[in-house]
Amino acid sequence: MRTLVADLHIHTCLSPCASLRMSPRAIVAAARACGLDLIAVTDHNTAGMVEEVARAGRAAGLRILPGMELETREEVHLLAYFDDAATCRDFAAEIYALLPDRPNDPRSFGDQVVVDADETIVYVEPKLLLSALRLSLEEAAARIAALGGLAVPAHVDRSPYGLVTQLGFVPKGLRFPLVEVDGASRPAECGPGAVLWSSDAHTPEEIGSRVTAFRMNGATIDEIRRAALGLDGRSAAVRRRPRREGEAG
């Protein structure tokens, strides 16, 4: 068992709201610079950058968890994590079909580009990714679970797009062992469980500004779930910033 310092909510240049500087190279360099062991790529309603960032991560010895940040019908943001990039990619294809066929207006919302390792633009996403899916929160959570993934409601206490601020309650039958919060604690509406802190970085400078230290046996979905539940000595503890080498504490 070891401690993995993780920032599990990072956008890339494919998210319209994120900086064009969020290339695979820049993301991995920033994560390495602040001593992160694990990051997740979570673009809005797409996984189009997951594999390129994972490649850059492998070259630098940084583990990348494939993910997405879904926007459900209720305009609730839900993070979805998977063990392997192929499952994430297949799920992203399902999600794309549920995304309204509305073109992005880059001036209004920002650019949506896939870039390669050399930061060359290889694809421009035409559909607006910042749209609510034709998929409810319950449907999304069920589908993620069926694919062996982990669903984590994003910034539940933030308005808009947070589960608690948007709905005021967690729909009956849904249980999330891990919820991401902006504040210090898990809102009572979410029931028992752990909290996730992450940067929700839209620029390289924001990466690692808020992190969660997982004590677990490797960076798998199952281990993260067990750490959230506090099983067998595993744990998830929030930190404002990872400790750098030589720092006290």
């Binding site: 207006d105 209004s108 919302f109 910042l130 308005s159 808009p160």
Partner: peptide, 13 residues
């Protein structure tokens, strides 16, 4: 009642 920056984008589109 929304105050998010996306309100502007939505109004434009």
């Amino acid at each position: 009642i929304q105050r998010h920056v996306n309100v502007v984008g939505v109004a434009q589109v």
